[in-house]
Design a protein around this nucleic acid. Structure first.
Lengths: 79, 79
DNA sequence: TCAATATATACGACTAATCGTATAAATCCT
DNA sequence: AGGATTTATACGATTAGTCGTATATATTGA
């Protein structure tokens, strides 16, 4: 899943949390942060710190991967 | 490339910048930030903001992807 | 419906990220 | 070696993220 802004990251976090049947409070505890912060981030409020994001993703068994930007859907040079 | 801390991110950024033959100053300009910040982040100083990271990666034609954590190298249950 | 639980919002305090600017230090090139 | 370019460091100012705590609002379940 490619992430290009805070809202998209929030959506991914929420989805992953729910699929693991975790409450915000539980996820917050696993990631050593406040429930209010989880709520904020899931709703795309502000721009979290890399450390914060990494802690949450780790608690959800997710990783950040850096990948090349995808080309356009079809390549005009192919015509 | 999987990223689990600021240092690893910094290394990826530097590598990508050099492979594109960009100077820190040029990358900073493309990403609308200071050269000093690029330097700091490449050296893994502190924990950048998602917005900052996204701007740099965009300037380097890179994306963030969220992926499941890899399993162990070989799975003990296979024995 | 009502209580219990979960999520969102509030607010001041504190910390950390980023800025602008300048310069020191390192690297490159001839 | 020496000048030019690039990168690292400095420092105070400003902005923004996170905290602790508390509470309001929403959702769930009996």
């Amino acid at each position: 899943m490619i992430i290009r802004n805070s809202k998209e990251l929030g959506a991914v976090i929420r989805k992953a949390r729910l699929s693991k049947k975790l409450r915000q409070t539980e996820l917050a505890r696993k990631a050593s942060m406040r429930q209010a912060l989880i709520s904020d981030l899931e709703n795309g409020t502000g721009s979290a710190t890399l450390d914060t994001i990494l802690k949450i993703l780790a608690a959800l068994d997710l990783d950040i991967s850096i990948v090349p930007r995808k080309k356009a859907e079809f390549d005009p040079t192919e015509y």
